[in-house]
């Protein structure tokens, strides 16, 4: 009897492993970053994802000659494809939601600091003041498949594009019946379903003060996006200047946060908010979170304290050297 049972179990196991989708991975270099694609299913799924990435880059790249955004920035107006309009609308909504802490027109300042080219410099006060006048997302006129910018203004969708790309690829894969996939688009992660063994995807949140990660989020059908000053920065005269600028001051955001991780179902929202909340700081970020139910946060202060919002309580855990630290849980009400 035991032998029969054992046989049946072995057979079931064999059958199950035959029917299980195969793991496919690919690495794509696009949008100034490395993108890692993992999916359980056909090879064609990766092909589809690459097509989406190529298409998105050809429309949204700031630097690529002939892209819709490039055309908009160089001519002050451009016809936009429906998809780009949708993204731009979504981005402008986020700018409004965060009261301008996210501003897609901050690009001229980012360029002045040299973050686009790597030739870093600290611009003078006058230069910054002058460029700040061009920064105003409200001045982006959008309608009838066309966008217009005031003189000298420029749009960069870099702060939301990867999240939007997460949504696009995950949506496509879902339509194609994918049950399990993982996107890591240069640090903007999307977990489609869980792993085939039923467990959640484990997403490490990088330690802003060192190498390795400070904690792990068990992710299932959510985007996880982190923004931190450590991603791109330079030092001059003993000061550190990072690439996330406060659109109000034109200087690197100095809100007391070292990294902001946003977890939610919509990649676009998570991507945009991670940048904005880094600019806004702990208190404003908490307040914004209390007013909504579509995302959760991991906030690391410059003092090394770790805060999470209560939705992550059962899926976030500290690891490595952070293991013995206290996580402060932010609750509603």
């Amino acid at each position: 009897m035991k032998r029969t049972l054992f046989l049946i179990l072995t057979l079931a196991l064999l059958l199950a492993s035959c029917a299980a989708p195969v793991k496919r991975t690919d690495t794509v270099f696009a949008m100034d970053t490395v993108m890692e694609l993992t999916v359980y299913g056909d090879e064609a799924l990766l092909e589809d994802a690459r097509d989406v990435i190529t298409d998105m880059e050809s429309r949204l790249s700031v630097t690529l000659e002939g892209s819709e955004i490039n055309a908009l920035n160089s001519h002050g107006s451009a016809a936009l494809s429906p998809d780009t309009v949708k993204l731009l609308e979504g981005a402008l909504e986020l700018c409004a939601l965060t009261g301008g802490a996210l501003d897609i027109t901050v690009y001229p300042l980012v360029r002045a600091w040299g973050f686009t080219t790597g030739e870093y410099r600290v611009p003078g006060e006058d230069e910054i003041a002058g460029l700040l006048e061009r920064v105003d997302y409200n001045a982006v006129a959008l309608g009838d498949g066309e966008a217009r910018l005031p003189e000298g203004a420029m749009v960069d969708l870099g702060a939301v594009a990867k999240g939007y790309l997460d949504d696009a690829i995950a949506g496509l894969w879902r339509e194609e019946g994918v049950k399990s996939g993982l996107l890591n688009l240069g640090g903007s992660v999307y977990a489609l379903g869980g792993k085939p063994d039923g467990s959640a995807w484990r997403v490490g949140v990088r330690d802003p003060f060192g190498s390795g990660y400070l904690g792990v989020i068990e992710a299932r059908d959510v985007a996880v996006v982190t923004s931190g000053g450590y991603e791109r920065y330079f030092e001059q005269d003993g000061r550190t200047y990072w690439h996330i600028l406060d659109p109000k001051t034109g200087f690197p955001a100095d809100s007391g946060l070292s990294s902001v991780t946003v977890v939610g179902q919509e990649g676009l929202l998570c991507d945009g908010l991670s940048t904005a909340l880094f600019v806004m700081g702990l208190d404003a970020a908490t307040e914004l979170w209390r007013g909504r139910t579509d995302f959760d946060l991991v906030l690391v202060t410059s003092g090394g304290e770790v805060y999470i919002t209560d939705g992550l309580e059962s899926v976030f855990s500290l690891s490595g050297s952070y293991k013995d630290k206290e996580v402060k849980v932010i609750r509603r009400g």
């Binding site: 959640a200 904690g215 013995d324 996580v327 849980v329």
Partner: peptide
């Protein structure tokens, strides 16, 4: 035999029920 859920008990701060 299938992993259903994983909880890091060191990360639990208040009693959580599921």
């Amino acid at each position: 035999g299938r992993l259903e859920r994983r909880v890091d008990l060191s990360g639990v701060t208040v009693p959580t029920r599921f």
